[in-house]
Write a protein that binds this DNA or RNA. Structure first.
Length: 462
RNA sequence: GGCGGCAUAGCCAAGUGGUAAGGCAGAGGUCUGCAAAACCUCCAUUCUCCGGUUCGAAUCCGGAUGCCGCCUCCA
């Protein structure tokens, strides 16, 4: 079965073939670490996690690079705002480096709780400054840059094919109302490669360069880092849809201008998460929800959000609601209970090839997770024997990432719990219902689930 | 102004020419000391609306309406 992926470059699903099979180079735009990630951001990382797992499911060896943007991402438009890290430092009374470290850790914790696999390489913008400077020098030698009073800029008019990703009409775009102009720019779409430190302000993050002390522009880091860590394996680059028009467009322009070669073969973009009222989640709105807050407020597990994300295809806006999240938690719990029931007296055997093929077709059709989830249910409801269902489901879980194999089927309980469970078994046998119910309450209070199944009483950690 | 997307049951949603997946919620039932859990059954003659093409359309074409995203920091 072929793997078909939607490519923003061509606006259609294409057959995926890596440049150096069986290796695949995957670059995912990581967070700018000046604040916590919200669940909308995290939805996009769940999308790229599925992509990565599906590549592996198809037998590819994935080299995954994710950057941490810890400098240079400006708050304002037209390359004239403040650096987000420096601003965050001011807001919280810490150094820019402390801010970056804190939010980087928070981000890593979030993705771990969502069972998002760690990238092969984490890289930071601040640790790739020489490579970025080198790239800018090449662009300068080739005549793609010009200098203004505040930095070195890329002249987008000199790069043919600037709109190949965004498919935008630049003339019409220029007619659009622009709030703030950078008067020194030659073209509205030009962007900073290197920004000079302001003469009157002492920046915490700044480096010497051939053009003067300063810091890199936001886009150049991704070009430098993907080239450094992926080499020739520029297979897939992904991120959120908002990056199509500016960030990724600029990455392509500067990279291809520098190397005279195609940058990435595939560009994939995840759609936004929107909340009731139809608005996207944004840090500027008051609908900003972190994973911590969402999980605590709704009394669900982080993985419930992962389950919820699988209900919608990644290229469609995901309608988020507390009701939907609760539904996902119930669905996840049900799935686990099904596994526990199967695990009772059976162990995984052989994978069913027919359902495996159906599952593969779903995920290989541009990561159609809603359909893949339907295949999961269909398989579980089938007449297959338990050992085959288990093996097949565990195979699917390589993509799903619900940790179903780690489920406790009732073994390995602490002595205290085991004693309580045994006591309740005796009480039930002797029809001491009051005592039995009391012991059940006690077990539940200690965080254990008690199930009376036709095969007897089962106890496991909730 | 430009570019793009979306509209399917109470909620989330797949399906993109062959007669409506799946999840959650809900109803009934089996099991059970009870409650859960699990299992079984039921739950859209219909896909925003109006035209058209076709033997046949949720799926294609035209139009209308509503909603959203990007073009400005944003996943």
């Amino acid at each position: 079965m072929d793997l078909m992926l939607y490519n923003t470059l061509t606006r259609r699903k294409e057959l995926f073939r890596p440049i150096q099979p069986p290796q695949v180079g995957l670059y995912t735009c990581g967070p700018t670490v000046y604040n916590y990630a919200h669940i909308g951001n995290l939805r996009t990382y769940i999308f790229s996690d599925v992509l990565k797992r599906v590549l592996a499911y198809n037998g590819y060896k994935v080299r995954h690079v994710m950057n941490i943007t810890d400098v240079g991402h400006l708050t304002g438009d037209r390359d004239m705002g403040e650096d987000k890290l420096e601003q965050g430092a001011q807001r919280e009374g810490k150094s820019a480096w402390e801010i970056a470290a804190h939010y980087t850790e928070a981000f890593k914790k979030d993705i771990e709780r969502l069972n998002i696999l760690s990238p092969t390489v984490w890289c930071k913008a601040t640790e790739t400054i020489p490579e970025q400077i080198q790239l800018i020098r090449i662009l300068e030698q080739k005549g793609y840059t010009y200098r203004t009073s505040d930095g070195i800029y890329f002249d987008t008019a000199r790069f043919a094919g600037y709109t190949k990703l965004s498919h935008q009409n630049l003339e019409a775009l220029q007619e659009g109302a622009r709030v703030e102009r950078n008067p020194e720019k030659r073209n509205a779409t030009d962007f900073a490669l290197w920004k000079f430190s302001p003469p009157d302000v002492q920046r915490q993050m700044e480096w010497p360069s051939p053009w003067g002390t300063g810091f890199p522009g936001w886009h150049i880091e991704c070009s430098a880092m993907s080239m450094k860590y992926l080499g020739e394996m520029l297979d897939i680059h992904c991120g959120g849809t908002d990056h199509i028009d500016v960030h990724h467009t600029n990455e392509i322009a500067q990279s291809e201008a520098a190397t005279d070669r195609k940058f990435f073969n595939f560009w994939m973009h995840g759609a936004f998460l929107i909340i009731a009222g139809g608005k996207k989640m944004a840090k500027s709105e008051d609908n900003f929800l972190t994973l911590d807050v969402t999980v605590a407020r709704n009394r669900v597990e982080p993985l419930a959000f992962r389950f919820a994300a699988f209900q919608t295809h990644y290229r469609k806006p995901m309608e988020f609601s507390e009701e939907g999240l609760a539904a996902a938690q119930n669905g996840l719990q049900h799935l686990r209970n099904q596994v526990r029931a199967l695990l009772d007296g059976a162990s995984p055997a052989v994978i069913d090839s027919q359902y495996q093929e159906k599952f593969r077709q779903a995920v290989n059709n541009d990561l159609n997770m809603p359909q893949a989830m339907a295949v999961v249910q269909e398989m579980l409801k089938s007449d297959l024997p338990a050992p085959i269902k288990l093996a097949t489901l565990f195979d699917f879980d390589q993509v799903l990432g619900f940790d179903l194999q780690g489920l406790d089927a009732g073994e390995a309980l602490p002595d205290e719990i085991r004693a309580l469970a045994d006591a309740r078994r005796r009480a039930r046998k002797e029809k001491q219902w009051a005592l039995s119910d009391q012991l059940r309450d006690e077990l539940q209070a200690k965080g254990y689930v008690v199930q009376d199944t036709p095969q007897g009483m089962k106890v496991f950690k909730a």
